[in-house]
Amino acid sequence: MEVLKIKNVKKSFSNDNEVLKDFSMEVNRGQVVAIIGPSGSGKSTLLRCATMLETIDSGEIIYLGEHAVKTNEEGKAVYAPPKDLKRIQSYFGLVFQNFNLFPHFTALKNVTDALITVKKMPKQEALEIGRELLDKMGLKDKEDAYPCQLSGGQQQRVSIARALALRPEILFFDEPTSALDPELTGEVLKVIKSLAAEHMTMVIVTHEMAFARDAADHVIFMDGGVIVEEGKPEEVINNPQNERTKAFLSRFDR
């Protein structure tokens, strides 16, 4: 079954530029989808719409068979009632480009606070989960560090642990390494690859072509708010068919 189904989504911003033009995609359980494309192609907007940080104008977004949003007869998007949306929201997590960690919480509290505050989990249990996840992220000795005391790569790994703590069915990454110094991207990509190896369902917007090719099992090249080309990573990245894909990829070392 698809974890996520996006159907005919349209999204414009007030100044009348259509960012997503009738966009559709599906993500199956365990699938790792990489989305590549030039800036302004609508990648980030797509993630923001899928995670409901932005509202869509029309189309459907379906998580695990449940409609988060559908379109009525007049062609307007109608969101599910708040109670249902709240549940649907717990199906996914998002890792931000600039981490958005809570600066006044330690690494461990960043990971555990939502479990305790939102999920009402007993503190001890939450702490166990938090420590286990930080350990998995290679941050065992950093649980008491505040975000300001961590490098960008460490902060991003904390934010991945924070998203994982809530056990999402699908995890979105919005250019997870774009805000990092080049020497720090490796540690974050390694963590994401290890999640891929565990068959975590993921959608990753990225500019790291080598990573997309190695970690993803499906690559989407997006431009101008539509899918221009998609398929197996080796095919799309090593042997693109479309002229726009070719032009875009020629700028990268593959």
Binding site: T51, L53, K86, Q89, S90, F92, G93, L94, F96, N98, N100, L101, F102, D113, A114, T117, V118, K119, R162, A163, L166
Partner: peptide, 21 residues
């Protein structure tokens, strides 16, 4: 930064929890 609100929303905090915590 608006990112703090967005992160809290994605983690399921309601409006009061987001503001207070």
């Amino acid at each position: 930064p608006v990112g703090q609100y967005e992160a809290a929303k994605l983690l399921g905090y309601n409006k009061t929890q987001t503001f207070m915590r």
